[in-house]
Structure formats: structure tokens, C-alpha cells
Design a binder for these strands. Structure first.
Length: 561
RNA sequence: GCGCUCAUAGCUCAACCGGAUAGAGCAACGGCCUUCUAAGCCGUAGGUUGCAGGUUCAAGUCCUGCUGGGCGCGCCA
């Protein structure tokens, strides 16, 4: 529908150019939007307003010329000029209703597109270090990252989900020491407990499993515990594997799976860090000062230069980051999206600067970043900070166990990443109209219920009959619903492009609302066979779009509630 | 102090690369279940879009400054 209108306007604009009303070289940047106010029709364009200046004419005058030049089209019932010069289009009912068969024919593929053309995209998200259970912030990253992947897949990209973790740094050392302390029978209260040791209850579990000689399988490694409290390396290997397995279980419970787990240590083992250093030094972007080696990141937009090799000879964390991203580039990902917490935002400029300094032809703004703000968890209006298992923070598992996977995923992905999020446990748990997840799922269940009713009343849906009488769907509510359904593909496309999964959530809320309104206003199970089947068809189309949209969010679409 | 980011109804949030009278839900008030799931619907009320300028035919949206919140500013990751 929208495309049709754009074509019509394009034809009209071209004609005006031929008539000399518009200068030949004026670009026709045609924008058509669904209207907010029904009095303005179904779609509106501001074309006359934007062309007024180059044409040197009054907007309304130009609008009239454009309308006069519009080719005839059966899909458009009426065209108005309103306000300062908007052109408003009223769609013919039959044309609007065509969305129903197109949804039913497309089924699960309705809303999907091939615009990504099979391009390889990598999305890195979560990337938690294996030092403890995943927390709410990781959960937000997991929800947003996974939805983004689903959106990209739905728009024709070849997506790789990647999880990067540091299995060798100071934090891991610290983890090993903490577990070792537990193995030796110490508790976090003891004076001998490692200074920056991890204090959560899970440390005791790791120690116990280690002593019991358990065998842990995580990623592609298998580690068996032993009773030796002295062997710190063995403890470290075991603890890392144990916590990686824990995190995997959390992610599995959340419905998130990764294609690649990338170890920071592999960058050292494969010589990629050294190669990166060499490239940077050879490129002349480094200098020695205070016994350390610095990278001149200020040449590439950073506000100060960064140390890349410390006085003690070790590398700073940002160097393997650069090596890692070079590796991503070399693996052929022209688009890479890093989903991270906003507390990492300083790495954005740094990593990009480091990549530029390599001079390997990586584009300036590469890679993309999606940063999410902090999550605050509340219960009964009070902030929740502790969990039994992790001690100092609320774990993702706590939320999944308490409010369920669907509500957790929806709540964490339904808001803009760059706004701070308050996760209200009471709200997420409530099985009532306050809860957006149930509101949407309820709409889906209602259609299912309607279909069951049709079956049991021996009035099962007659597809052919329904398709023949779609023009009977002529109430305001039905038209609103159909217009909403027609917008779905556009929403998916846009959400993928802007990397904003919350747009899908918002759309689903609106769609559910339109459906509930329609449901209350229009009775489906009427005796009139033609009317009933047309309405059942609309119900099925709505159910299909709800399903497709919920699937993009990773949320289930229950048949009954 | 510097950088990034956010600020919309009492609360939680929308507003589609600037577009017409800024929309939902919750909370408040008033209605709708002998009819397809009331986890729903309809209605009333609620706003100087943090403040001050600027650009534009048109600004919640873009620019500048300010105020306030979050995050970051280590040879930690």
C-alpha cells in the first residue's frame, strides 16, 4: 500500500518536472507515513512541503498540482489536501483487506525480507567473564543481543552469535584464589581470605565439586577436579569450566545460544596479540615513555594516548581487544555489532582507534556498538541488590526462576537500550492487565480460543469463503487492525536497521491493543457464513503476526491462558 | 574537571531518518460479563516534552548553552 502510494507520487512528480513546474534536478525524496489521525486518511505525504522551496511555489498550490498529476489507482479511494499542504490518502477497503491473504499465504515468513542479501553479520554479546553467575545486566545484554540477531536473521542476514571471554586475566587469578581458599576450608569471613576474593556462595559449590573430583564439560573442554589444594592451575581450569557451564545453563534457560565462544587466551596462543603489536609498531603509531609503550590513539579521535605495553612487559586489556576485532574483520564480517553494558563505552573509541592505526582498510566507524544502560531491580518499590547465590548482585537466574523466561526477556528487551531500566519484579510477575507480556500473549490466546470455538460449533474456518468476502471487513476497528497488520514488515525492517528491538515490542503492544478493541466491538461467531469467515480470516492473520513478532522477541505464543 | 548518555502526564514508558491536536498502560473517577477467554473493552480527568536560546514552512525530535540523574575517565578487565 505504502509502496503503491510512493509509486503514484513518483509518477506525479516526474510529470510535474516534464511540465516545468518542478526543476528537473530536484530529487524526489518521497516520504509516506501512516497517519496518526484517521481524519487524515490512512497514509499521508509531506512531498508538497519539501518541494515547495525548490519549486518556488506555495505548498498547497504544489500539492494541488501533484494530486492532479496522480495516476488513477483502484487502491486509493480518495485523496485530500490538508493543513499546510499534506496530501492525504484514503485506502479503498478492498485494498486494505489484501493484507489478510498476504499474511495467511506467507505464514511464518510474513515480515521477513531478504534485504540483508545473505551478508555475514557477527553479533557479540553477553561476553561475561567466567567469575560468577550471570547478573541482570548480562540478562539485558542477552535479551537485546538475541533479539537483534533474530531481527537480522529475519531481514536476510547471515548471523553469527559470539561470546568472548577472558579465561586468563587477573580476575580469573582472583577466582582461582577464592576457590582455593574454600578448598582449604576458609570462609569469606576469615582474615586469610584473599583480599579481592569473590565471596558469593557459588565459590563454595565450585570448591566442593573440585574436591569431589567432578568432571565438567563446558564449550569444547572437559575438566576433572582433584583434591589437591596446592595446584592453583588445576583449580583455575576447573573453576573456569565450572562457571562457564553455569552460565551456559543460565543462557539455556533464557533461550539464548551462541555459535562461537571465543577465548581471549587464544589470541596470545595463536600469536595474534604479538602480530597486532608488531603491526602497530611498524606503522609508526607507537612511542616509548615512562618505560611503557604507548599507542598514539589521539591520531584517531581518542582524547588521550593509551598504554599498550606496561612497564612490566605485559599488555593492557585493550590490546587483545584490538587483536580480537582484527580477527573478526579477517573472518569476513563486514558488519560487527558489539552489545555491551554502557560502563564499557570508553572502549568504543579506543578499539576503533586501535583498528584504524593498523591501517588494514577497516572503515572508520567499524564496528557498531549497541550499549545498554544499567538495570535496577525493585520489589515492592524497594531496590533489590542481593542474591543468595552471588551475594552482591541479582542474578539472571533469580529473575527467570521468579518471573519466568517470557516476562524476563520481554521486560529486558522492550525498552530502548540507552535508557536506564527499572525491572519491577511485582509487575513482571503480575498476571494482570498491567503486564504487557500477558497483554500480548492474551491476544494470541484469544484468537486460538476463537478458532477452537469455531471448530466445536461445526463452523470451522472456510478459507475460500473467507477470502471471497474480505470486503465485509468494513468496521473502523477492523480497518485499523488491518492497517496495523500491514505495517509489520516495515517495523521489522526498521528495528533491524536501527538495531532497536524495542520497536517490535512496542508494535506488538499496539497490535494487541487494536485486536482487543476489535474483539470487543465486533463479534466473530455470527451466523452469516460470509461475514464470519472473513472475520475468522482476520483473526488468523492477527494471530500469525502476533506469533511472528513474539518469536522475534524470543517470547512464547501460548494457545491458551 | 573532562567525555559518553539520558530527561516526555503523579508512576512506567511510546511517538516511525522533523510533520498536522505529543500517545498508551498503571494509579484516580464512571460504565460494560444470560453472547466468541473481563489477563479484556469503553469513557472522564491528567502536559509550558528539565530550563534558555537558535535553525526550519514545521522541533519532543536537529544545533548551542545551562540544570539534574546514570556511567566512564589506572601501566584494572
Amino acid at each position: 500500500m505504502k509502496d503503491t502510494i510512493i509509486e503514484l507520487l513518483d509518477a506525479a512528480g516526474t510529470q510535474l518536472k516534464q511540465q516545468g513546474i518542478l526543476p528537473q534536478d530536484t530529487p524526489l525524496a518521497i516520504k509516506v507515513e501512516p497517519t496518526k489521525d484517521k481524519a487524515h486518511g490512512d497514509y499521508a505525504s509531506n512531498l508538497a512541503l519539501t518541494l515547495a522551496k525548490p519549486a518556488g511555489r506555495k505548498p498547497r498550490e504544489l500539492a494541488e498540482a501533484l494530486v492532479a498529476a496522480l495516476p488513477e489507482n483502484g487502491a486509493i479511494r480518495q485523496v485530500d489536501i490538508a493543513g499546510p499542504g499534506f496530501i492525504n490518502f484514503f485506502a479503498a477497503t478492498d485494498a486494505v483487506a489484501q493484507v489478510v491473504p498476504s499474511i495467511l499465504d506467507a505464514g511464518d515468513t510474513y515480515g521477513r525480507s531478504l534485504s540483508g542479501q545473505g551478508q555475514q553479520v557477527q553479533v557479540e554479546f553477553v561476553s561475561a567473564n567466567p567469575t560468577g553467575p550471570l547478573h541482570v545486566g548480562h540478562g539485558r545484554g542477552a535479551a537485546i543481543g538475541d533479539c537483534l540477531c533474530r531481527l537480522l536473521e529475519a531481514t536476510g542476514f547471515d548471523v553469527t552469535r559470539e561470546f568472548y571471554y577472558n579465561d586468563a586475566g587477573a580476575q580469573i587469578q582472583n577466582l582461582a584464589l577464592s576457590v582455593q581458599a574454600r578448598v582449604q576450608g576458609l570462609t569469606p569471613e576469615a582474615a586469610e581470605w584473599p583480599e579481592n576474593g569473590y565471596r558469593g556462595a557459588y565459590i563454595a559449590d565450585v570448591a566442593k565439586a573440585y574436591l569431589a573430583g567432578e568432571t565438567i564439560t563446558a564449550d569444547d573442554r572437559e575438566v576433572t577436579g582433584k583434591s589437591d589444594a596446592k595446584d592453583l592451575d588445576a583449580i583455575q581450569d576447573f573453576a573456569v569450566a565450572y562457571l562457564r557451564r553455569e552460565q551456559d545453563l543460565d543462557l539455556k534457560a533464557f533461550g539464548v545460544a551462541f555459535d562461537v565462544y571465543f577465548l581471549e587466551s587464544s589470541l596470545y596462543n595463536d600469536g595474534k596479540v604479538d602480530a597486532t603489536v608488531k603491526a602497530l609498531v611498524d606503522g609508526g603509531h607507537t612511542y616509548e615513555e615512562d618505560g611503557a609503550t604507548w599507542l598514539r590513539t589521539t591520531d584517531f579521535g581518542d582524547d588521550k594516548d593509551r598504554v599498550m605495553r606496561k612497564k612490566d612487559g605485559g599488555y593492557t586489556y585493550f590490546l587483545p581487544d584490538v587483536a580480537y576485532h582484527l580477527d573478526k574483520w579477517q573472518r569476513g564480517f563486514t558488519t560487527v555489532i558489539n552489545e555491551q553494558g554502557a560502563d564499557h563505552h570508553s572502549t568504543v573509541t579506543r578499539v576503533r582507534a586501535g583498528l584504524q592505526a593498523l591501517e588494514t582498510g577497516i572503515p572508520q566507524g567499524w564496528p557498531d556498538y549497541v550499549l545498554h544502560q544499567m538495570v535496577l531491580v525493585t520489589r515492592s518499590g524497594v531496590e533489590v541488590k542481593l542474591s543468595k547465590r552471588a551475594g552482591s548482585y541479582v542474578t539472571l537466574r533469580d529473575l527467570i526462576d521468579e518471573v519466568g523466561r517470557d516476562a524476563t526477556r520481554f521486560f529486558l528487551a522492550a525498552r530502548r537500550a540507552d535508557s536506564q531500566l527499572t525491572f519491577d519484579i511485582d509487575l513482571a510477575r503480575s498476571q494482570s492487565n498491567d503486564n504487557p507480556v500477558y497483554y500480548i500473549q492474551y491476544a494470541h490466546a484469544r484468537v486460538c480460543s476463537m478458532m477452537r470455538r469455531a471448530e466445536s460449533d461445526a463452523k470451522a474456518f472456510d478459507h475460500a469463503l473467507g477470502m471471497q468476502h474480505l470486503s465485509r471487513l468494513d468496521t473502523e476497528q477492523e480497518k485499523d487492525l488491518m492497517n496495523r497488520l500491514a505495517r509489520y514488515p516495515e517495523v521489522v525492517e526498521r528495528a533491524a536497521q536501527t538495531r532497536e528491538p524495542q520497536q517490535v515490542a512496542q508494535y506488538l503492544m499496539d497490535l494487541a491493543s487494536d485486536f482487543h478493541t476489535c474483539y470487543n466491538a465486533v463479534k466473530v461467531m455470527v451466523d452469516d457464513d460470509e461475514l464470519r469467515n472473513a472475520r475468522l480470516a482476520l483473526g488468523l492473520a492477527t494471530r500469525q503476526v502476533l506469533r511472528n513478532g513474539l518469536d522475534l522477541m524470543g517470547v512464547s505464543a501460548p494457545e491458551e491462558m
